[in-house]
Design a protein around this nucleic acid. Structure first.
Lengths: 387, 387
DNA sequence: GCAGATTGTTGTGGCGTACAACATAACCGG
DNA sequence: CCGGTTATGTTGTACGCCACAACAATCTGC
């Protein structure tokens, strides 16, 4: 918590405030629950909640005690006032949303584009949309912004190192958005933020060691949570699961490397054998389940086996307790249930008592926006009472 | 630091004591240096050091100030009194050492064996050797024991899940050693402990995101440090780099999986092409450099390329700032300098400004013993003043 | 030997949590 | 409907820990 800095007394206060606020952010809790999980004294929790309520970060519902003996404990929920702007630039659109604490998307706007946006265009479009959304949210307090970028992003300062599909290179997108909106902004890889969202609110809730793998139209990415913290790496772009090697030779992937997960497991290859032009996630899944022809089954098997090889490497390397599959990977595995786990089992360390729990993602299309909003919220938790 | 527990005021004390003790453990430092790096007040550092000295954990040398203006600051060094027992059972021997704070090996004893030891034999031999070593170290205070096991170990309780070469399965080795010696004991995978040793005292000093890869006679293992903490995984056996997949088909490795790093990169294959029966690390390295015949060069190239594919996967996954190669991997890369980095570069994300620093390990044959001793020492740091 | 600089030492004050005693508000059984 | 039981919020005091300021100690450089 204190890093390698010496701890002062007031840091304890900050830490405990953050603890309470983060816990309430994940799910509302009664004061007595907060007392239990924190191990702090009732009176301390009372003071902490009072201070957070004072700053408009949490509210207390008198409602609560259902059938419990004893004095009922008020339910502490995140306030509706603090609000974050989430931005997700893509090839054909820029999506913007306002998100409240608790990962609640308040309003969302998708602005279609004819061509991939330049950084300046993306910022202009995003800021205009954000202002429209904010105008409709009376009484909200903007605490920051977060950008989910399909590319490699340096987390410390939100610099887009490389976004091949957008054609961006070394773009300080966080600084640009932050300046335009007049707030602090952060940016990170989209799949990494998806990992964070699934970890906090989705299929990875409560898990300390998690790997999230996202299959998108343009490639495969992911995020790693280890020991209850998102793994950033030296410069913040850990989690590029798409470029894990699984074979010699083979196709080249989006960065020109042969035989990687992303070169073998491709949404477009699935659409091709299915004879589809385009499909949303649900359509793709039903099509894969409905079409039992030989070419489709062969392609699905090939892709599942390739995914299994990569996941086995990741499991042996990181020993996660859960793996969450998002994007089209979810549909892919639904088409042939069980096969993925079976192939993984033949390649992972043979410890049958401790199998990895492989699950489908739970959050839907708001995934990236919720994840992007976590960037400013995380900063808020680090220092809940600025000034 | 406080996990998800609420922080109390006295935990600040524990944290700061641990901070000072750990810093001094890594390298002696003057009080003023401690003040600077911790950000704490001079008076606070004074109190902390005094308390640690009181408990016999550190000593203050009056010597210090060379050529500095101002009052000289006493040098704080780890005391010689606290001592840890390190145990490393192998196929043909059990090695035991007494280790002092600062990673200083005080005495070492290698007991050769005719056959791989059963757990009971290993404990008997280790404890007898430990008692001999301790008898020679007057005035020392035994603070705990650590066991480095060539196999998969659950870190929380030091249970050996699987050690194929020793033929062990589900052996509570830490509990056995701890009971026999009458102290707390821990156990972990040998390569993981090697990683920790290199991180604290060797080629990974000061780095926050590190991957250590160890090539041993019986396979390839490793350890991961992310964000300044050793990555344990859900059950503590993360870091099995040997079983990262790199190709289809191929040989089976020690756990029967085909096409993994460990199935391609093998010490025995190098010895074979060199026509050697056995060789210590230095001999192997000189032989590889001296023998420029076609079969040797081809085998070295094959192995380096295989290693590069695995490392590229790891780099894309974890974005470390440094990779440390130990065991015979160090000799392997010395034979053809540059090639490893070149092949890695073709397969890793193209971010030329932030290349990974690939280095050879610095610690020699004491590596595993120093790492094993870190297990009890780490526990000591977590609570420097028990009772 | 003196000025300047740096660091150890000591005493006071502020901050944050624990603890205990008391107050409050539900459920429960008659 | 009412007192007993139970769990929780509230309040005032105590304790631990660190920051700060003033003073003491010890080195360098001239």
């Amino acid at each position: 918590m204190f890093g390698d800095q010496g701890g002062r007394n007031d840091l304890v206060r900050r830490h405990n405030l953050a603890l309470v606020l983060r816990r309430v952010h994940v799910a509302p809790a009664t004061r007595s629950e907060l007392t239990r999980v924190s191990g702090l004294n009732r009176s301390t929790i009372g003071a902490l909640v009072a201070e957070l309520a004072d700053r408009g970060l949490v509210v207390e519902d008198e409602a609560a005690g259902a059938g419990q003996v004893g004095r009922p404990s008020p339910l502490v929920r995140p306030s509706d006032a603090p609000i974050a702007v989430a931005v997700n630039p893509e090839l054909d659109a820029v999506t913007v949303a306002t998100v409240r604490l608790g990962g609640r998307v308040l309003a969302k706007e998708r602005v279609p584009l004819d061509a991939p946006p330049t950084p300046e265009e993306a910022v202009t479009v995003a800021v205009a949309a954000a202002r429209r959304l904010l105008a409709r949210s009376g009484g909200a307090r903007l605490v920051g912004a977060g950008v989910a970028v399909p590319g490699v992003v340096r987390r410390v300062d939100g610099l887009v190192r490389l976004a091949p599909h957008l054609g961006w290179r070394d773009v300080p997108i966080a600084a640009m958005v932050g300046e335009a909106l007049g707030v602090q902004a952060g940016a990170a890889n989209d799949a990494g933020l998806g990992a964070q969202a699934e970890w906090v609110f989705g299929a990875g809730r409560g898990v300390e060691d998690l790997v999230y793998v996202h299959g998108g139209a343009s490639g495969v990415g992911g995020g790693i949570v280890s020991g209850g913290a998102l793994v950033g790496g030296a410069t913040g772009h850990a989690g590029e699961l798409g470029h894990v090697g699984i074979r010699r030779g083979g196709r080249a992937d989006t960065i020109g490397v042969r035989g990687t997960l992303e070169s073998e497991v491709r949404r477009s290859a699935l659409l091709e054998v299915l004879g589809l032009e385009r499909a949303d996630p649900d359509e793709l899944e039903s099509a894969l389940i409905a079409d039992r022809s030989r070419p489709v089954r062969d392609e699905v098997r090939r892709q599942i086996d390739a995914l299994a090889v990569a996941l086995a490497s990741v499991i042996n390397l990181l020993n996660p307790s859960r793996i969450v599959l998002g994007g089209f990977l979810s549909a892919l595995t639904a088409a042939t249930p069980g096969r993925l786990a079976d192939v993984v089992a033949t390649r992972a360390l043979p410890l049958p008592d401790e199998p990895v729990d492989i699950r489908r993602a739970e959050l839907g299309s708001d995934l990236l926006l919720i994840g992007a909003a976590e960037l400013p919220f995380t900063r808020l938790f680090a220092d809940p009472l600025p000034a």
